[in-house]
Every structure is written in structure tokens, then in C-alpha cells.
Design a protein around this nucleic acid. Structure first.
Lengths: 285, 285
DNA sequence: TTGTATGCGTTATCAA
DNA sequence: TTGATAACGCATACAA
């Protein structure tokens, strides 16, 4: 008498301790719960191998669908696991081969980043440091937004990009390198909230005043950005809406709809952490 | 040939968007994953009705055990649902009737709070405001720690306690009331990280300088406490260890062990957000 | 044609 | 040293 469906959904999360992902998860969980589905959660901690394991675990448990934010987009094993999986897939802010037939919920990081960098260029900055996490879609789109801003103003690409991990450690190390290097940037964009924490630590250690000695922009709104003094400019999005949208896309797939892609906007919010570059900084180009 | 167990665990969380709970969850999930268990997560959003729903969902899915942090400890319906449940239960930082035969992982909030308040009393404070969330174990234990500190010094209980919810809104409103009232406190203790955000907002709105005009102590270490200027004193614990311990207790129950209780320590960390009370404050008692 | 995307082959790295 | 696994890069194919 029972249907073949388990009325459960698997969520493969990269790092649950990230408050952003927690919000996405909450949005998805709430929507799925209202539709009568339980959410199973697993944690990969940024490890592609555990992504594969987790996908297999969900396969064994016969979940009706998968929500996932994979650790590595191009990873051969991950793609192979997903190809074997029969259930609908919704990818959250990650690019996957179209042949998988997945749905996508993506943030338009590029537009927000472009607006942020144009704001810095308007203020007179020319050397900007961009600190990114692993080379997954959000990082790549953010870099493109940076490139577009410079290209649109016909300026030489004097920005410096530091790829790494979405960790406070990388944020701190990259900020230190940028600030201690030759021709240090007059503005820094932190591409993730853990990266922001690390960057702030390095900045505070050097006694630099935000908005005067150095400008700073954060990706994603953490409470810290509005409570910090001065308040920190940010590229905003709505993570809970992202989770809800992911859940809705999955529910449509379960109702026999085809794969869809939804792109959600990001918005730049100027705040006093951005000011004109210090006068002694070399204004090239 | 398959065992009757589903090798899955249900985690009933109050509010996943709380970074503290996210860390507890991650600790539990990692340990359970290593033991071959998948973690199912549901979210109650502080609503006892949804606690009951979620417990029933897990019952239907035949999970092997439950980890939970209930919204309301005394709630009749919640207790009744738990009584019906056949699987082992581990309660995280919540009191439940002993007749349920649950295991417990608890934080020793009282000791940390007592040390924190004694620090304030040593600095000369007599009027302290304590902002708490809902009346569950952490709040109750924190209040007791406050009481003990005053009693141990033979001081009149000039502290003021504000129970409410674990939200930034309550933190801001309660801080505003305390500061705008007659005989305002010279120090405030924020009993939860969302409460801290609200309190800081109210304090910043009034242009008060921490450590000089007002002293502030936070419960639980959010990155904000070390990045804020001045850094904010806190009562520290290890949420990830709490999740791991909860998972271990549950695994022991699954291996036919009896119910156990583990109490994990909290530690007060003094920081510059605490200073002597301003001279113009009335020093009573 | 140019940019983009995908799949395969190769190398590098780490752990046993 | 060997095995496995992850990162890199090229060639191809498709689309704008």
C-alpha cells in the first residue's frame, strides 16, 4: 500500500558550520517539510571523496532527490557518482555538466561584484586585492565581475587575485601577503564570510583603519558587517531564498517537470569601510 | 539478510541558522558518519508543535536513535511523543524527565556564568543586566550562576534578568529597556549569540563605549567577540565537542549501553569589553 | 570564428 | 614503492 517513494531528500553540504550554508539548508528544509519530505543531511567538509561517499549513502537510502553543493565541480568521481544516480538533482551554486540533467539554483555573483569594484574604481582605487576560496562557480564568477569592471572602464587589470580555500586561515594569509607585498592594494574584497574573518584579523593586526588606510568589501551578509565599526560594505544575497528555490525546483522535478535553472540576484551595498585610497598610494593608469 | 536497523539517526534541531547549533550538528554528523550512520535533520524553529511533528516523522522513518534539543522542556505533547518512541534518545543541553531514560550532554553554564559575574563584581559592578532566551536549561543555569556569584559575595541581588527568546530582536529590546530604565545596569551579559547581536546594536545606537561606559559579556564564542573593538569577554564552550559527545553517547546506547549524562565545562575569558563601572554610577550595597 | 563546455589522458601528490 | 586519488591540461565539439 505504501508508495515506492521514501519522501526523503538528501542534502550534500560542503560545510555545515558555514552560517550561509546553514541558512540555505534552513530555507530548503522548511519548504521540503511543508511538502511532506524529510531532509537528510551529510557533510563533506570540502572533501570530494566524501562527496562521493555521501552521494552513495543517499543512493542506498533511496532518497527521492538530491540537493547538493559539491566540493569540486570538475571532479571525475563526483560526476560519475551523480551520473549513476537515478533521482533528480538540484545543484546549489555549482556548475555541473549539462549531461547530468540537473536543475540549478545560482547566485549572480558577477553583477554584484562588478558593481562593488566599479564603486571602488569610482573612489579612485586602482589596485584591488580579491581573495577567493576554491575555484568553484562563486569564485569564478566573482573574478569575472572584477575583470568586467576593469574592462568596462578601460583600465589595466591592476587587481590581484588569490585563490585558496573558503577558510579564515586563507583569508588571513592572503591579506597578509597582499598588504606586505610590493605595491599593496588599496582595497580588498573578501570572497566568503570565513575569508572575511581572516582578512579582518590581518587588518586589525596591522592597525589599519578601514575606509581610510584600506577599503574592504565582503561577499555575503554576516551580522559582523553591520556591527563592525566602521560598517563593512558587502555584496548581498538571500541565502534562505536560495534554499527555498532549490527545494521548489526539486519538488517540480519530483512532479515530473524538466530541469530548470534559476539565477538569483546579488546586490552591492556601499558602507563606510570603503573610502578613497590614501594619498600616498601610487595612482597608476 | 539486511538488519532491521536503518543506520540513520534523527536530529531535531531548534534553529539551524544558529551557528552554534550548526557546529554541534557538524560534530555529531562527523562522528556518526564515521560509525556508518547517516544523519537526518529536521528544524523546529523554536516551535514545540514542530518538535512533535519531527519526532513522529523520525519514528515513521525508523531511525535508530534521536538527538534532540527540544524547544520547550516541559511541553506535554513533546514528552508524550518521546515516551512513545522506542529508540534511544540523547538530549542536548535540555532537561527531560528521567523516566524517559534518555542520555544527556549538558554544558556547565552555571560555573562559567558565576566566574563571569564574579569578574564583574571584582571590577566594582553591582547592577548587572542578564538577558536570557526561552526558559530552557541553559537560561536557567545561567541565572543560577548569576545568583550564586552574588550570594557568594554576600551582596544584595541588584541584578536584573530578562527572559525572552534567543533572538536579536529580544536582545536589542531588552538592552534598550535596561539602559533606558531607572538605575540602569553598568554591565550586561548576553545569554546567546543572537541576543549578543541585538545588544550590540542597541549599545552602538546609544554611542556607548564598551569597557568604559558599559561592560559586556557574551555567552558562546562567535567570531564577532574577538574581532569587535574592544574585544568582547565571553563564556566559552566547545560546541563541536558537544556534538561529538552526543553522537558517542548515542552510539553507546545503540551498542546496548544504558543512559548516561555527560557535563562539559564552560570557561570565562576576560576581555577589554569589561572595565570598572563609570564613576557616576550609584554604587549601592 | 571565438568563446565555452566537456571528456579524456597525463602528471603530481599523498598514504599505505 | 606502489596504489589510489586529485589536479592539470589538451583536444574536441558545440553554440553564439
Amino acid at each position: 500500500m505504501r508508495s515506492r517513494t521514501t519522501h526523503s531528500i538528501g542534502f550534500v553540504a560542503g560545510d555545515i558550520s558555514n552560517p550561509l550554508l546553514a541558512e540555505i539548508l534552513m530555507g530548503a528544509e522548511t519548504t521540503l517539510h511543508d511538502a511532506g519530505y524529510a531532509t537528510l543531511l551529510t557533510n563533506s567538509e570540502g572533501n570530494p571523496g566524501r562527496d562521493i561517499e555521501n552521494i552513495q549513502i543517499f543512493e542506498q537510502r533511496r532518497v527521492d532527490g538530491l540537493l547538493l553543493s559539491v566540493a569540486s565541480e570538475g571532479h571525475r568521481g563526483t560526476i560519475a557518482s551523480l551520473r549513476r544516480t537515478q533521482v533528480p538533482i538540484v545543484s546549489i551554486d555549482r556548475n555541473l555538466p549539462a549531461s547530468l540533467g540537473a536543475s540549478f539554483v545560482l547566485s549572480d555573483h558577477r553583477t554584484g561584484m562588478r558593481a562593488a569594484v566599479e564603486h571602488l574604481l569610482d573612489l579612485g582605487h586602482r589596485r584591488v586585492g580579491l581573495i577567493l576560496g576554491t575555484p568553484v562557480r562563486p569564485s569564478i564568477e566573482r573574478q569575472r565581475g572584477m575583470e568586467e569592471a576593469y574592462a568596462h572602464r578601460d583600465l589595466s587589470p591592476l587587481y590581484e587575485v588569490r585563490l585558496g580555500t573558503f577558510s579564515a586561515e586563507h583569508g588571513e594569509a592572503a591579506t597578509a601577503e597582499l598588504l606586505d607585498g610590493k605595491d599593496p592594494p588599496t582595497a580588498i574584497v573578501a570572497g566568503g564570510n570565513q575569508i572575511l574573518y581572516g582578512a579582518l584579523k590581518a587588518i586589525a593586526n596591522r592597525g589599519l583603519e578601514l575606509g581610510a588606510d584600506l577599503s574592504l568589501i565582503s561577499c555575503d551578509a554576516v551580522s559582523l558587517t553591520e556591527l563592525y565599526r566602521p560598517p563593512i560594505a558587502l555584496i548581498k544575497r538571500r541565502p534562505m531564498a536560495m534554499g527555498q528555490e532549490a527545494a521548489r525546483l526539486l519538488l517540480r522535478r519530483l512532479g515530473a517537470g524538466g530541469p530548470e535553472t534559476v539565477v538569483l540576484p546579488t546586490e552591492f551595498v556601499a558602507r563606510p569601510s570603503c573610502g578613497p585610497p590614501p594619498l600616498h598610494a601610487p595612482l597608476t593608469n
